[in-house]
């Protein structure tokens, strides 16, 4: 029934868990966290390995969350306690995680889940092949969105948001901002790890290379969602992250349909983010400002002329 849109919809929903994590660091904490490229495959590796060892897939998914959370907390420690710059702290963790992920997968670069029971196969057995994954992921994403909405309005959640908005102020109100940042990074990467677990079960394998470009894809999703919904509240912002994730996968599908090779997609994504980030700056350039004004004034003139002609026309009509 959904035709070619079924796959991007399923992917978009599963990746929405990751996009919520990226939203948490980039937008709430105002922290450019690159740990994601490592914590995403970490979650996948942990879940896949656990499932092949006979652990319940739901437990395995939660283990993926935990693994990601530990990776995020590590980045947070590097940044707050060792004063390593935010970007570098994430890159260091991500780089180290590559080796960790290979270890987790027992030295192999790929762990297949073809004959295993996963959350996806279980859901498909329960709700049918066509809708199983969608129902599973919708339930997951909605649950996480609602929990996150609630959390970000609690006393702890408010303080966490203030850490990204005005760190000095919230410290003056008695918040240990280092601790909160570590916690925020742990929560964010926990979600990213959980997304990795879900994607591994969805595609029925974990791969050590599956994390490359995840951060940029996540950021592209956040930006797309914001451009579409222009969120003003936390509730609408988390919703726009989810919508953005689905929209991003649709865009990728369209790009493939338009004839881009699958190998070109990362470039497409990067360009998408560059354009989205640079539009506000380009609008500020004097050259562009001028042309915008000119355009507006010519548009106004056109409207004026139209109105004038309408008036004249009607007068003419009346005089007739």
């Amino acid at each position: 029934m959904l035709g070619i849109w079924a796959t991007p919809l399923e992917q978009g929903l599963a990746y929405a868990v990751l996009v919520l994590g990226v939203y948490l660091t980039f937008r709430i904490l105002d922290y450019p966290d690159l740990t994601v490229d490592g914590s995403f495959p970490l979650g996948a590796a942990i879940a896949a390995t656990a499932i092949t060892r006979g652990i319940d897939p739901l437990v395995a998914t939660l283990m993926g969350f935990l693994g990601g959370a530990i990776a995020g907390a590590f980045t947070g420690l590097l940044h707050t306690k060792l004063k390593i710059s935010g970007l570098l702290a994430g890159i260091l963790t991500m780089t180290g995680l590559y080796s960790v992920n290979l270890r987790v997968m027992g030295g192999r670069s790929n762990v297949p889940l073809l004959r295993e029971d996963t959350l996806v196969t279980l859901a498909q057995a329960r709700f049918g092949f066509a809708w199983g994954a969608i129902i599973l992921f919708v339930a997951f994403v909605l649950l996480i969105k609602l929990l996150l909405d609630y959390f970000l309005h609690t006393e702890v959640g408010l303080a966490l948001r203030a850490c990204g908005d005005n760190e000095k102020m919230i410290r003056a109100l008695g918040v240990d901002t280092d601790l909160y940042k570590i916690f925020g990074l742990a929560l964010s990467n926990g979600l990213v790890g959980m997304a990795g677990s879900l994607i591994a079960q969805y595609q029925a394998f974990a791969d050590v290379g599956m994390g490359i470009g995840t951060v940029v894809a996540g950021l592209a999703s956040v930006i797309l969602g914001e451009a579409l919904l222009k969120p003003k509240t936390i509730m609408s912002a988390t919703l726009s992250a989810i919508v953005g994730s689905i929209l991003y996968r649709f865009t990728i599908t369209l790009a493939l349909r338009a004839g881009f090779a699958a190998t070109d997609l990362r470039l497409v994504t990067a360009v998408l983010v560059i354009v989205a980030l640079s539009v506000p700056k380009i609008k500020e350039l004097p050259f562009f400002k001028k042309t915008v004004q000119e355009k507006e004034s010519t548009q106004n003139k056109k409207v004026y002329n139209q109105q004038a002609s309408v008036l004249m026309g009607s007068e003419k009509h009346a005089s007739d």
Binding site: Y150, H153, T154, E155, L158, R161, D165, L173, V175
Partner: peptide, 27 residues
């Protein structure tokens, strides 16, 4: 002195917990 992207009531709620333990209760 204030968090600009947060609402007036959220800012006041943060100030109300000055120096106290913050919980998982709506602020």
């Amino acid at each position: 002195g204030t968090a600009s992207t947060m609402t007036l009531e959220e800012n006041l709620a943060m100030a109300l917990k000055r120096g106290q333990k913050r919980n998982l209760k709506l602020g």
